[in-house]
Design a protein around this nucleic acid. Structure first.
Lengths: 130, 130
DNA sequence: GATACCGGTATCCTTTTGTATACTAATATA
DNA sequence: TATATTAGTATACAAAAGGATACCGGTATC
C-alpha cells in the first residue's frame, strides 16, 4: 500500500505556504506599488504622486514590507537633500508568473460572475466598475 | 509604430483582476475551508468541528462567500432536524491550478527567507512555526 | 522672510475582519 | 425532566488595516 500523499502535516504545510504567498501580495497597495516600480526605480514622493491617495504612512509601511520580502531595494543617495530610490529586485521577477496566473484567473472569474447574471456581483468581485 | 501593450486602462484592469482573484481566497479561513470540503460534502457542524476554533458566525459567512463565488453549493435535506451539506462545485476545480502555483511560490519564498537568515522572518512570513 | 520640496514619523480616528457568547426551535436521548 | 443535537442568527467586542492631519530639519525658491 502506498503512503498517502496528503497527510495532515503536508496539508497544513501547504496551507501555510499558500497563506505566505497571499500575504506577500496582500493589502490594498502592494500590487499598484509593484506595478509603479515595474517602470524602473522611483523616489518616495514620486511614488506617492503616482499612487494617488496613498498616505506617506501607508506607503512607508508597504515599501518596508516589500523590502523585507526582498522584492524591493532602498537606496539612499548622498545629495542635499538626500534622495531615496526604491527599485524592484531581480528576485521580484519570480512574482511575475504568479501574478499572471492570478490575473488570468481573475479575468475569467469576473466574466463568469458578471456573465452569469449574478444577483449582486459587487458582493463577489472586489474591483470597482462591475 | 506598435500599439503599446500596457496602457493605463489595461494595466488597471489587470490590477483589478488580480485583486478579484486574491479576494476569492482572502481571509483566515477560506483555504482551510476549501481543503476541508475537498474530501467531499460535509455538514455545517461537521466543518465547524474539523476547523477547530472557527465560530459559527464566521463559518456561515465564509460559506456564503464561497457559495456566491460558485465554488460551493449548499443543499438542504428535508430530514428532521434538517441537514445541510456544503460541497465543492465542478467549477471550484479551476482554483486548483492557482492554489498550486501559490503553494509552490510560497514554499520557495519561505525557504529563501529562512535560509537567507533573515533578521526577523516572522515579519515576513505569516504561517506559524518559522 | 514666506513658502515649497524632500523622506519620512507621530498621533489619532475609522473601517474591516474576526472573536465571544448567548440564543433559537424542533427533536432525540438519558 | 434535563440535556444534547441540528443550522445557524444576534449582539457586543477586540484586533488589524488603513486614512487624516500635522509635523520634523534642511535646502531652494519667490
Amino acid at each position: 500500500m502506498k503512503k498517502p500523499i496528503h497527510t495532515i502535516e503536508t496539508c497544513n504545510q501547504s496551507i501555510g505556504a499558500v497563506r505566505d504567498a497571499l500575504y506577500v501580495l496582500n493589502g490594498k497597495w502592494k500590487l499598484p506599488l509593484i506595478v509603479a516600480l515595474a517602470g524602473g526605480p522611483k523616489r518616495f514622493k514620486e511614488i506617492q504622486r503616482e499612487l494617488k491617495d496613498i498616505t506617506p504612512r501607508v506607503l512607508s509601511k508597504e515599501l518596508r514590507d516589500l523590502e523585507q520580502n526582498e522584492f524591493v531595494t532602498r537606496k539612499v543617495f548622498d545629495t542635499v537633500p538626500v534622495s531615496v530610490t526604491y527599485e524592484l529586485t531581480e528576485y521580484s521577477s519570480c512574482l511575475d508568473e504568479i501574478i499572471e496566473s492570478l490575473r488570468v484567473f481573475g479575468m475569467s472569474h469576473r466574466e463568469r460572475i458578471i456573465g452569469g447574471l449574478h444577483k449582486d456581483p459587487e458582493l463577489v468581485l472586489q474591483s470597482e466598475e462591475v
